[in-house]
């Protein structure tokens, strides 16, 4: 393919120079900042003043402090809970779109993706107004006479965080799963059924392995992005459900900010999340080995 593409340009400047502006931009505005962040994580701060150097103090502090450990565990827990809702629902949804509704699946995908662009902050805020103590759900239930006292666990809790994050991340998880399933002709499922596989066995031994790359991407979206979100816990989570993201954000825009500590936290979170993610992917791979 590529050779015939390049042919009309071949004389004169190579069209590959077109890679340069964006390539340079990526290097300066994405790669360089990440390196800067890494360097900073070995520095220390005194008030707002940054003190260059090389110390592992920040990392030691994060890994030994019971507070940070608890935050990290809670973050992982929330990320897992969200993923455990988002990925199966997205899988079932993609399955229905691809194999039940077939051609109308594209339309359903458009509808689902459109919700991504309906305002990130707005949707989180909307869940607060729905789940709140005097919010839509409680007031409706009370109005209907189903409950006397508002249900308090709905808001400012881990539950609220998981419900809200799931709504935010579901569309992102559907996309890779649906495109992966589009590449699986129905023949393969029928062949398995024809050879005697029941529906569940067919899913486990044929469909899941065949859409594994899509499943991995969906998993990455749900897990990594829910771990990095700090807006959701600060709007719908209570003081007991702050996540590590909130603490990192506070290190950069809070009163007692400490940039180097925040930078170190960011790297710890990314590392921990990446490891948990890889472990789970390996487990799924093992479980679906036929």
């Amino acid at each position: 393919m590529a050779s015939s593409l390049a042919k009309p340009f071949r004389r004169g400047t190579s069209p590959r120079v077109a890679l340069l502006p964006a390539g340079g931009f990526y290097a300066l505005v994405f790669a360089l900042p990440v390196v800067a962040l890494l360097v900073l994580s070995f520095w220390t701060a005194n008030g707002f003043k940054l003190i260059p150097g090389f110390t592992l103090d920040n990392y030691v502090k994060i890994l030994t402090s019971p507070l940070y450990r608890a935050l990290m565990l809670r973050t992982i827990g929330v990320a897992f809970a969200t993923t455990a809702i988002v990925v199966p629902v997205a899988f079932a949804l993609a399955y229905c779109m691809r194999f039940v509704f077939e051609r109308r699946g594209q339309m359903i995908l458009q509808i689902i993706l459109l919700s991504l662009f309906s305002g990130y902050l707005v949707r989180i805020y909307a869940w607060r107004t729905i789940l709140g103590k005097q919010g839509l759900l409680n007031s409706t239930l009370q109005w209907l006479g189903l409950i006397d006292q508002p249900l308090e666990f709905l808001i400012y809790s881990n539950t609220a965080v998981v419900i809200t994050l799931s709504g935010l991340l579901l569309p992102l998880a559907v996309l890779p799963l649906y495109s992966a399933m589009l590449n699986v002709p129905r023949d393969f499922l029928e062949a398995a059924r024809d050879l005697g596989a029941g529906k569940a066995y067919c899913l486990r031994t044929v469909l899941v392995p065949m859409v594994m790359p899509g499943l991995r991407t969906a998993f990455a979206f749900a897990f990594l992005l829910s771990a990095g979100d700090f807006v959701t816990p600060s709007l719908v989570g209570g003081t007991q459900s702050l996540l590590i993201g909130n603490v990192i954000a506070d290190q950069f825009r809070g009163i007692g900010s400490n940039w180097p500590l925040g930078a170190a936290m960011a790297f710890v979170v990314v590392a921990v999340m990446l490891c948990s993610f890889l472990a789970v992917v390996a487990l799924i791979g093992r479980a679906t080995r036929w």
Partner: peptide, 13 residues
């Protein structure tokens, strides 16, 4: 019964 599919439908994995 067993079916031989038009394009084989061999499980790629």
């Amino acid at each position: 019964t067993n079916l031989v599919f038009q394009r084989g439908a061999l499980f790629p994995h």
